[in-house]
Design a protein around this nucleic acid. Structure first.
Lengths: 182, 182
DNA sequence: TCAGAACTAGAGTGAAAACTAAAGAAAAGT
DNA sequence: ACTTTTCTTTAGTTTTCACTCTAGTTCTGA
């Protein structure tokens, strides 16, 4: 149903889209830009993707998924593992992290479909962090745990944003230090 | 040099621009959209503004300025005052808050001019919060104060974003509660 | 009141965008 | 080898965008 060549150019187009999204933002991305970067002609693009919207959404979906690479998980991560995973995600692929933040904010605030996706993802992550916290401090109340995790996740996202703005910001240490407050 | 009518339509255009920025994001704003919303024709628009870029930048500048309505200040605010001011800003005019967050993230990550503006503004705010913290807890070290404020500001922004995504999120209480962690 | 300045309407321009159609080249299955 | 499907190219079409032009209206100060 799909040739090897087709799959390969599809991947090239997707990679180019992610790069351009990170560099130029949601509005800076054009079909021509993508095609030039991926060394593909418009006709090929439309043979593999339905629209510009579709390829952007695919890139976004992957970025969101990459925040939490193992959503099933073992069910007994520590909080430090979860924070480390986020640090790795943000520092590992800046492009993806940029796309994630931009889409979460701009898309989340303007596009209902993206908002639903972002909110759903946030809930999942929240639940997982809360479970980890309960495991580490069994005495803690449900409400208090939820609130601590709210603060932790909010601060983590805030730090990530700060670091992307200002590369001299020590994201890793700040992020780890948050655990000592909780 | 400028008629009353002109000033009035200028304000209408600016208000429409802010609203559209909040609703549709940086890329969703068009001259036609602005003109329709402001009930003005393109000719009038270009009589009052040089370009789309100019009107958007003006709206953005106002949004950033509105975060901290009294930058000079008395020099002896309490932390709670500063947090309250932020709460008022976010909850007072959702459009402005949306524009602020979107521009800080999307613009900050892609446009050097906006990035510089956002970073500068952030530094000012940081310094002001640190000064307030020092006043309240004179014994605290400079580094520790800076770090606490880093966390506080990051979490505040994270909360604001969360609330704009999900209006049922109790932004006000979460924001105030952050002070008890510090 | 009247001249000049500021404003508005509304059609129009050119560039750039997304997207399409048709025909040829490569790959895969038989 | 032959047929079918998939992929690529090329050369469009259409839409949308920011922005301009001109003629006409309203405002304002002397």
């Amino acid at each position: 149903m799909r040739n090897r060549a087709g799959i390969e150019t599809q991947e090239r187009i997707l990679a180019a889209t992610k790069r351009l999204l990170a560099e130029r933002g949601l509005d800076g991305v054009t079909i021509k830009g993508i095609c030039d970067a991926a060394e593909v002609h418009a006709g090929s693009f439309y043979n593999l993707f339905e629209s510009k919207e579709q390829v952007v959404l695919t890139a976004v979906r992957e970025a969101i998924k990459a925040v939490d690479p193992d959503p099933a998980g073992t069910g007994n991560d520590h909080l430090t593992d979860l924070v480390d995973a986020y640090i790795r995600f943000v520092m590992g692929d800046q492009n993806l992290a940029r796309v994630y933040l931009m889409v979460a904010v701009s898309g989340g605030l303007t596009d209902p479909a993206i908002r639903a996706r972002v909110l759903g993802h946030h809930e999942d992550r929240h639940a997982r962090f809360v479970a980890a916290l309960h495991r580490e401090r069994p005495g803690i109340g449900d409400d208090q745990a939820a609130e601590l995790i709210d603060a932790l996740l909010a601060a983590l996202n805030g730090y990530a944003f700060q670091w992307l703005l200002d590369p001299s910001f020590d994201f890793e240490n700040h992020a780890r230090r948050l655990l000592t407050y909780a």
